[in-house]
Measured scan of single mutants.
Amino acid sequence: VKKMAKAIMADPNKADEVYKKWADKGYTLTQMSNFLKSKTAGKYDRVYNGYVIHLD
Rank of each mutant, 00 (worst) to 15 (best):
V1W: 04
V1I: 14
V1H: 03
K2M: 08
K2T: 06
K3H: 10
K3V: 10
K3D: 11
K3I: 08
M4K: 05
M4C: 11
M4P: 03
M4N: 06
A5R: 02
A5I: 06
A5E: 01
A5W: 04
A5H: 00
K6L: 13
K6C: 12
K6A: 12
A7V: 11
A7T: 09
A7N: 06
I8R: 01
I8W: 01
M9R: 06
M9T: 03
M9L: 15
M9C: 09
M9A: 04
A10N: 11
A10T: 09
A10S: 11
A10Y: 09
D11P: 03
D11K: 06
D11N: 12
D11W: 07
P12A: 10
P12S: 08
P12Q: 08
P12N: 06
N13Y: 11
N13L: 12
K14P: 02
K14R: 12
K14A: 10
K14S: 08
A15C: 06
A15R: 07
A15Q: 07
A15V: 05
A15D: 03
A15K: 06
D16V: 11
D16Q: 14
D16I: 12
E17V: 09
E17H: 08
E17F: 10
V18D: 01
V18F: 07
V18E: 02
V18C: 06
Y19C: 04
Y19I: 02
K20F: 06
K20P: 03
K20T: 10
K21R: 12
K21D: 13
K21S: 14
K21W: 11
K21E: 14
K21I: 15
W22N: 00
W22C: 01
W22P: 00
W22S: 00
A23S: 12
A23C: 11
D24L: 12
D24Y: 08
D24K: 11
D24S: 12
D24W: 08
D24P: 00
D24R: 11
D24A: 14
K25I: 13
K25W: 15
K25S: 14
K25Y: 12
K25P: 01
G26Y: 04
G26Q: 05
Y27G: 00
Y27H: 03
Y27R: 00
T28W: 04
L29M: 07
L29H: 06
L29N: 04
L29T: 09
L29K: 11
T30F: 14
T30Q: 14
T30V: 13
Q31M: 14
Q31E: 11
Q31S: 06
M32A: 01
M32H: 01
M32E: 01
M32V: 13
M32W: 02
M32N: 02
M32S: 00
M32Y: 00
M32L: 14
S33D: 08
S33R: 15
S33M: 13
S33P: 02
S33N: 09
N34R: 14
N34I: 14
N34F: 14
N34M: 13
N34P: 00
F35E: 04
F35Q: 04
F35P: 00
F35H: 05
L36E: 01
L36S: 00
K37P: 01
K37R: 12
K37E: 10
K37H: 11
S38T: 09
S38Q: 04
K39M: 09
K39F: 09
K39Q: 11
K39V: 09
K39Y: 09
K39D: 13
K39I: 08
T40N: 09
T40I: 11
A41S: 12
A41I: 12
A41N: 11
A41M: 11
A41W: 10
A41C: 11
A41K: 14
G42V: 04
G42N: 09
G42M: 05
K43N: 05
K43S: 05
K43C: 09
K43P: 05
K43W: 08
Y44Q: 01
Y44L: 03
Y44G: 03
Y44A: 01
D45Q: 09
D45H: 05
D45M: 07
R46I: 14
R46D: 15
V47R: 00
V47L: 03
V47T: 01
V47C: 03
V47M: 03
Y48K: 04
Y48E: 02
Y48C: 06
N49L: 14
N49K: 11
N49P: 02
N49Y: 14
G50C: 08
G50V: 07
G50D: 05
Y51C: 02
Y51G: 01
Y51F: 07
Y51N: 00
Y51E: 00
V52G: 07
V52W: 07
V52Q: 12
V52I: 10
V52H: 07
V52L: 10
V52A: 14
V52K: 15
I53N: 13
I53C: 10
H54I: 05
L55W: 06
L55M: 08
L55K: 01
D56K: 15
D56C: 15
D56A: 15
